[in-house]
Nucleic acid binder design. Sequence first.
DNA 1: GCGAAATCAGTTTA
DNA 2: CTAAACTGATTTCG
Length: 744
Amino acid sequence: MERDICPDSVPFSSSLDKSKVLNVKPLRSLVPVFPSPHGFTTFSPPQVPPFVCTQPSGPFPPGFSPFNPFFVPPDSQQHPQTPTNQPGGFGFNHPTQTPSVPLPSFRTPPPPAARAQFAGAGNGDEGSSKKSSRNREAGINKGESVRSVTEEDACNDNRIWAAPYVSSFNMHITDAETTSNGEKQKSKSHKRVKCNQDTKLSLSAVGDIFMTFDARQRADGDRESVTHILTTFDALRRRLNQIEDAKEANPGVIRRSDLKAGAILMNKGIRTNMKRRIGFVPGVEVGDIFFFRFEMCLVGLHAPSMAGIDYMSIKFEQEEEPVALSIVSSGAYEDNVGDGDVLIYSGQGGNINRKDKQVVDQKLERGNLALERSLRRATEVRVIRGMNVGHSNSAVKVYVYDGLYQIQESWIEQGKSGFNVFKYKLVRVPGQPDAFKIWKSVQQWKEGSTTRVGVILPDLTSGAETVPVSLVNDIDDERGPAYFTYFPTLKYLKPVKSIISSFGCNCRGPCLPGDANCSCISRNGGNLPYIGTGIIVSQKSLVHECGPSCSCSANCRNRVSQTGLKVHLEVFKTKDKGWGLRSWDPIRAGAFICEYAGEVVDKIKGDEDRDQDEDDEYIFDAAHTYDSSFQWNYVSELLDEMPGDTNETDKTSLPLTISAKNVGNVARFMNHSCAPNVFWQPVLRANNNESDLHIAFYAIKHIPPMTELTYDYGIIQSETHSNNARHRRKICLCGSSKCRGGFG
DNA sequence: GCGAAATCAGTTTA
DNA sequence: CTAAACTGATTTCG
């Protein structure tokens, strides 16, 4: 029997011991792997079929024309976007669906002719709105001039069409700009200059770290650059936050590491999709999540740093009109109709949220006017839904990109203060992947108002963790993985003398970030390795946490990996990789997820019992190494900071081998990926100089709910493994364009 | 003590 | 150049 393929199906018993659950040979099945037909990174779930462009056949919704891949609207300075060249592009919710009407998101905006019925400029339309006329105040700002194309856009466009491959420059040229002393120059002219750089300017030291961006990439992003920019932003933000934390707290001083990091990246040109556009933004996928407005700004999803409506002027026939590009909904006015496909959005202005000025009626200007015109022109609007997530003590706002919507109607309503407010009803364009809907489902599962399909156990830890871990299979009939004992942390069979000092600190209360006397902080290079609630700043060879021999309190911020799970996880049956792990909650970059629990294996003894080891699919060996290209930390060059020990990434291999075969936690279900969203990190807890060493997992990037969590199993360094003929390399099923083909 | 409201500093874009 | 904007962290209020 092929033991590597066949999952051990254990008959499900309703009266099973709750401390044990069923199991499968999960993580590494030997199934043939086929090369991706696309050859690009697929960050979207692999079950999504490739887009197939069939012959269009009507009827079409009003305002839509059949898709013609060779037609470029004369006023649209965009490449004709054929679906297959979209990295990680959309798929359809229903795999069997054959699209007869192409996704509007793949197209450039339809030509004005196709929307003749919407193009009437007059006020006499008999729209579907039964409410008070939305045109009452039209014309107030009719003459408002909105630039049609930014200077930079024009410059980029010129590059694209005239000399597409000429310019290539490093994207973080610093030249005249300095960010030291908080001195910020808004040199708009400087940006223009950048477009004309033909020479490759690079700081070689940094150039190795950063990818090289050319003008086209800045104008039109792709998945890789978007990911890279977001990673760079958050790494910088975390570091700035860490620096601020260490300073003495001044009452009333508000620290905004997000603004600082954002401004630096803006100044250095580390951004993409600078060419504004209607609809699909290359490299940004429906369902992507953000924790700061600046993140959406940098990747071109939503340009304004504060305003909720992004808009630009578009030329329709002879007239130029502002149309909305994207909106950010705070959720305050969110409509509960349907499955979250409808959104009621309030217009801007009227100083609703400001007390220092008189509250007045909203006017049909700026964003409000743009939304009005988008309604008339039937252009699509990107919708980002902001939501307050998290528990009372740490409420965080998360932004979910929910894809494209169309405005169905608008009206004027009296707000609470008695003044007029514009309202817009937006309906989601069908055929896009679920995003906000997933959030709604999770919310309902938690409330208990709907039941999660396929739940086998509501909590496979039987209360061993402070949050439940669901066991779910909505794929097939398998009732669970093979028996193992759930245990939330490591089992050291005997105390091991630490080779690294780990005597505890003498702090009272929580350890304070700036405390030079805290020995634990000192061992971390002078900085607390975490910010906020359990966000790690940098990946390091070793993180020193406080431990049993410290006198600090249990709520010390240097005890992140020892305080248990924070998010609601779910062990689920994957399509082709056995069991896997994912989260109901969103996880932000750097957040602690779990540790690798299990029994610490004596390696020498392990060599003797080689036969046993070969059967163990649940070994974690700290001797594994990362892919050398893994670069997660902030780059000190962006901070005018000398590379220091706080940023060291030296990966000394540590003598720790864990087996989770018989005893373990959720980590044993995490699958491998060559393009992972989780990394591991050795953590040493202060414990009377014993080797209280653990392996902790943290998020590489923001992870939307219900996305599988994966880490890179790495390559084993040990010669005994590679020379062992019986050690078989597993074939990788991650489906990434960066897939190495195998692991182990 | 907790959730909500108020306050304040700060950045991009039109 | 300046005003405007559904920010985000922190303090105050009920």
